[in-house]
Design a protein around this nucleic acid. Sequence first.
DNA 1: TTATTCATGTAATTTGTTACATGATTCT
DNA 2: AGAATCATGTAACAAATTACATGAATAA
Lengths: 182, 182
Amino acid sequence: MEHVILGFLTMGDMTGYDIKRLMSISTSFFYDASYGSIYPALRKLEERGLVKSSEAIESGRLRKVYSITDEGREEFLRWLGGPPGESKFKYDFLMRMFFFAHLPKEKIEAAVTQHLSEIRAVSKKLEMIEFAVRGKADIYQMYTLRFGKDFFAFLQSWFERFLDELKNGNPGEPGVEKGDTL
Amino acid sequence: MEHVILGFLTMGDMTGYDIKRLMSISTSFFYDASYGSIYPALRKLEERGLVKSSEAIESGRLRKVYSITDEGREEFLRWLGGPPGESKFKYDFLMRMFFFAHLPKEKIEAAVTQHLSEIRAVSKKLEMIEFAVRGKADIYQMYTLRFGKDFFAFLQSWFERFLDELKNGNPGEPGVEKGDTL
DNA sequence: TTATTCATGTAATTTGTTACATGATTCT
DNA sequence: AGAATCATGTAACAAATTACATGAATAA
């Protein structure tokens, strides 16, 4: 988390609010943080000398603008270049799906349908973001966004097929379908 | 978390150790828990009357076998049928990737290569699990597993292409490639 | 005989969320 | 006038990890 904030501050000086806003239009589909974690993190980073802040009143509003220090930059690069440590991935819906056998068919279909509409919403959002961000982001940031688009497209087609098989009855068991590369 | 444990206990009576073992061969690719969260959760569930335990000494070893109560079953079904609440998904590697511009090319390629080998390892594990579990799991559990296989296959091909584009230089920017459906 | 698996658990810490509290400014 | 956005922050709580501590049984 602290490293993520340092990363955002390498893009320019920002307030906590700015960081949150930037996250929501760039990384929110795989990483998002609340103010309750951003502000305390910034304070801790300042205590450790990795960022510094300057308060200013811009158009009547108090803004506490943070910037990354040289030590902060070093720490950020140490993290980025360091060992990745098993990249965990989490996906809550799958846990429910794992236990769907306890649910009547209509409820399963309703749950999957709703999940699909969430997926479509994220897809749409990502496309808007890509449009808005074009030119401003570097290639790796564009690749990350691209990953998001591709991933949600994958999810969409997977769950569409799943829903279809639930409704129409599928020929063969899920794991032993004809045409499978086994 | 508590609901996940309840879910596992609907499959049969188990010890905390058993739950962890079952997780590792079924849901670990998207959900895994440590003993430090399983045992305290079981105690809380027992306090709330959702599970009950019986201690027995089997072949010299103390085993505290938990079973789900009727109230536990109700609670589990309430959760499963209830509102899903935005299914978050998290994927740490993407955060590093987002900032790859700060890293020299060799380090980026090394990181992606290593990540790919992790992905391949999980793929392999999932295939073994599918084989081992065939017949024992219900269709939704098989679908969940299938999702895992398909997802990791997607990851593999995505990052293989990414690595290829990094090495060979890609024709066009990531977001505006020829052949893209835009 | 030694390492691994089986088996249970606690304590400290980390990490983060949700809800609350406050208030000015700017858009409608 | 009122809603939304900009802006900062705290406090209570929740969830879970890591490391530690213990010990018997079994497989190599």
